[in-house]
Write a protein that binds this DNA or RNA. Structure first.
Lengths: 145, 145
DNA sequence: TTGAAAATTGGAATTATTCTAATTTAGTAA
DNA sequence: TTACTAAATTAGAATAATTCCAATTTTCAA
């Protein structure tokens, strides 16, 4: 059972939507709550399945729309490994991703402060990065869950 | 006109193919030469178009097969930005990629020695990276070509 | 030279995602 | 409240990069 949005998340959502000139809808709120509730980098299909458990009328197209909206508002990041389906991540701290080769599971990797600054400094003059994505792929030692 | 493979590239290709228990074919050699000749991170479709200019009988499926083989042999890297078509890069030096938001063009970014080592050190115990991909996206000041 | 395994081929199939056009809804103004 | 209008949702069709398939061709070792 996905609990509804905590107030601070609801506030962040409404604020971001208003800032972007977008409306608050049940579906957007629900999709956001699904992402926050289980932060395991689900695909759109998985978000759809989870969303339907509480909101059986939501459509796949709407899930895609909501995810795109959330990414556009900066509340969620899209994570792409090779040509696998896009995964979604509501962690807004500066972080990288690690995918386990065997299970395909994706984990967040915290980054030391200033690492992004250092990476940005690697760019030659004339290159200005708006986003930096750091993807690790390999073997993660067995964990529970 | 795509010149045929330089000897050292031909040798590297044959060596890599043999190491992986694969055969040398005209198509593999030609696709590799196309990648080496213009290193602008072409998509499979673009590689197909270029390959056909000299080898009109090559099929799109074969181009995909060859690219996959070259990547598997470690002679070429696959570059993925969001859900755009995969691009291919024959630069084997340690490097990152930068995509210009406006043109979509992808550039190689040289990395200082040891940067990859430092990035690897960011991983918590139990995580072992086999590959690390660093993607920049933003604005590159206008260049010729 | 030959045979078997591997590679190529054209076209069909797949699949994540986007598009479309009709319906519903949110938010505002009267 | 009510009514309006633009925005959002919806189901299903369409798209596009890639993969699959079964038949043919090629490589290479014996």
């Amino acid at each position: 059972m996905v609990k509804s949005l905590p107030v601070e998340a609801k506030e962040a959502l409404d604020k971001a939507l208003i800032e972007h000139g977008l409306r608050s809808t049940r579906q957007r709120e629900h999709v956001f709550s699904v992402l926050l509730h289980k932060r395991d980098h689900p695909t759109a299909d998985e978000v759809y399945a989870r969303s339907r458990r509480e909101m059986d009328s939501i459509s796949l197209a709407t899930v895609y729309n909501c995810l795109e909206t959330l990414v556009g508002c900066g509340l969620v990041r899209a994570v792409n490994y090779e040509r696998e389906p896009t995964r979604y991540c509501p962690n807004l701290h500066e972080h990288a991703h690690f995918q386990d080769r065997q299970t395909g599971r994706v984990y967040d990797v915290d980054l030391p402060p200033d690492l992004m600054k250092k990476l940005r400094a690697v760019l030659p003059d004339g290159y200005h990065a708006e986003s930096i994505e750091l993807y690790f792929h390999g073997k993660a030692e067995a964990e529970n869950s």
